[in-house]
Nucleic acid binder design. Structure first.
Lengths: 375, 375
DNA sequence: TGCTGAGATGTGTACGTTAACGTCCACTAC
DNA sequence: GTAGTGGACGTTAACGTACACATCTCAGCA
């Protein structure tokens, strides 16, 4: 009994008991110092008009009383409304729909501020993103969430937006030198390495392995392949890596290139598809009657993939947790906008490895909408 | 250009433009209706003292103007401080330290309310939990986060606490009929099934498989074994499941029972340890010179496990994401306390499968403290 | 001495909501 | 008729903060 311990945590929002259990406020500091709340306010916020001596006294007393600003009162007074835009492509819907949903849900749950959230859509990665960004820029938002697909092509727009005082935040892929304040992505390198490790367990004898990716100019796609190659080299020297196939996220190209790949004399025994756009590839494999006869690892999750995973025709899929990415990206951006002093962490998610056994946990989350277009 | 679309989301916190861009407040409704804000307040909150007709008019106008309460103003006025207690064991530290940290961090980031968070510790699962709960009950908290270890033994205390108006919230394991308002756990059944699937990939020929668990009276431990058995039956009929070893979370027992198990004539070729308390078991395996010669799947992550995973001596560990569990549990509890009308979701996490390739992503999160006791 | 300007400090109001309190009026009981 | 009752509604004072504005002090100078 005497073995149980209580530790009380003074959270930033909990104020220490001072005047009979109530929290210490700005006027308590003033009273304790025999000064006025105006002075205390100036001192606490580093505004001009306070002597150095008074400022020091205020800060010390604030510390001593355990003063924490009352966020509710502050945001009531300031009554500022944050304006956020999420600039996202409509395709690949299986990925971006849940990502949007994550953002929406995070916005819903945000307390303490009025906020406006605009979703600005554009057709597909690489098509319309520039116009959409300009569109967002015109709104003079406080923050913009976006996907840096070919970061170099957008460098000038991004610089302009940043110069205008808008905080840019990357999601789904990173653009390290773009002036973005932070990003949330899956750790792409690990994603690729995991695919290699899973294949190394399955393929015991010398085999050929192919990779199919979307856009190598996208930072995260390149990283996945780097991780995959490194993983193969480290864990499975008996596996040969074929030249990468780049689809530029165009379904028809993906289909045709896969067919060519499967008909070539150096036909692969396994394929790692590092983009969520795996359906055309899977269709090609199926048409060549190779499904079930080669190991396939895909990326992300959508309805058409479910039976393939259930039956073992696809070994595993590396789920990039779009909803969680959206939620965290939004939360991080908001936190930064509310308090620009706090450093912004750049988050690297661990992808979820989806196998047969844990598939059902993720299928629940799939909305009816989030099936990919059947193109 | 004309291809980009903008959708504006009216989040619950965004108010529709009415009086020149500003949000609609309670006094806007009053003005529009020619009534007073007192009446509007009463109508909106279902308080007595409003005629049915007026109430209906108010509600309709509120809807029409897109009224959303200003949370900041509300919580400033109400100025209530939520009192939360987290009743958690000190051991297994590798699990409960990060869980506590998740709770602490979530509390830190909570806006819009003053809150007090008390951590009430007790030595270990099954020892001191009752006293700790009584301790928490005495504080008359608004909510209590706790781990239902042997739920039946605590049923009476829990009933008392609930009757006293405190919301109970389960974390790490569930206690479905305890009056708890919700829970956050790993999906234990899936955890077990994943272990089975991973072993089924590795062990191709007929083999014996053992399971070592903590406490079968704990709902989630029983579920893991159920999932493991079902997974084996479905995916690997060539694997024989040995009788379960129950350690009751006592390291010495775990060690001795493992030695016995490994020396028996029916020595297992693989072991699934479904509790985070795997160190004594691993020590026994090592002392019997069997490490690296049998497949081992563990639960959760701590420093001692890292080299074993890196070297492949442990095939995989099923990470229960204690920090994420703590964070979500706290957030869910707070959300419920702020608005009791909203339904509380019961969350089932997917465990993370940690292999060599993705190990580094999780090692970063390990704090120096979260190593298990070396007992 | 009086005036000026600037820096330091005090004062008051508003943010949107809640809840205590006041007012009005219809109705009942005597 | 009057007193009493209770329902319906209006009024107002907070909650803690931020900021515009008023006031004070004092050095510098004619």
């Amino acid at each position: 009994m005497c073995d149980t311990g209580v530790r009380n945590l003074h959270t930033p929002l909990m104020k220490t008991a001072s005047r009979n259990g109530k929290a210490a406020g700005i006027r308590d500091i003033a009273k304790a110092l025999g000064t006025s709340i105006g002075t205390v306010d100036r001192a606490l916020h580093g505004r001009s008009g306070v002597s150095a001596r008074t400022k020091a006294r205020v800060l010390r007393m604030a510390e001593q009383l355990g003063y924490r600003p009352n966020i509710a009162a502050r945001s009531l007074k300031l009554n500022r409304t944050l304006r956020i835009a999420a600039v996202l492509p409509r395709e690949i819907a299986a990925f971006f729909d849940p990502l949007r949903e994550g953002i929406r849900r995070a916005a819903e749950e945000t307390l303490g501020t009025q906020l406006t959230l605009d979703f600005i859509d554009y057709p597909r990665l690489g098509s319309g993103d520039r116009a959409a960004l300009e569109n967002a820029a015109a709104k003079h938002c406080n923050g913009i969430l976006f996907v840096p697909f070919r970061p170099r092509d957008l460098a000038d727009v991004m610089r302009r937006i940043v110069a205008q005082g808008t905080s840019m935040f990357c999601v789904a892929s990173d653009a390290p030198d773009s002036g973005r304040i932070g990003c949330v992505t899956v750790d792409a390198y690990t994603s690729g390495a995991l695919a290699a490790e899973l294949l190394s367990h399955k393929l015991q004898s010398p085999s050929r392995v192919a990779t199919i990716t979307g856009e190598l100019a996208t930072f995260d796609h390149a990283e996945k392949l780097r991780g995959f190659a490194a993983g193969l080299a480290m864990l499975a020297p008996h596996l040969t890596l074929l030249p990468v196939v780049e689809t530029h996220e165009r379904p028809e190209d993906a289909y045709r290139q896969t067919i060519t790949l499967l008909r070539s004399k150096a036909r692969p025994d396994a394929i790692y598809i590092s983009t969520a756009n795996s359906l055309p590839v899977l269709r090609a494999i199926e048409e060549q009657k190779l499904i079930g006869h080669m190991q396939v690892i895909t990326t992300d999750l959508f309805h058409e993939l479910v039976p393939l995973l259930e039956s073992g025709k696809v070994l595993a899929t590396l789920y990039q947790r779009p909803e969680a990415q959206g939620k965290l990206a939004f939360e991080t951006l908001i936190t930064h906008l509310m308090d620009k002093d706090k450093p912004v962490r750049t988050h690297r998610f661990a992808p979820h490895i989806i196998l047969r056994s844990n598939l059902s946990l993720f299928v629940n989350r799939l909305s009816a909408r989030s099936s990919v277009a059947s193109t």
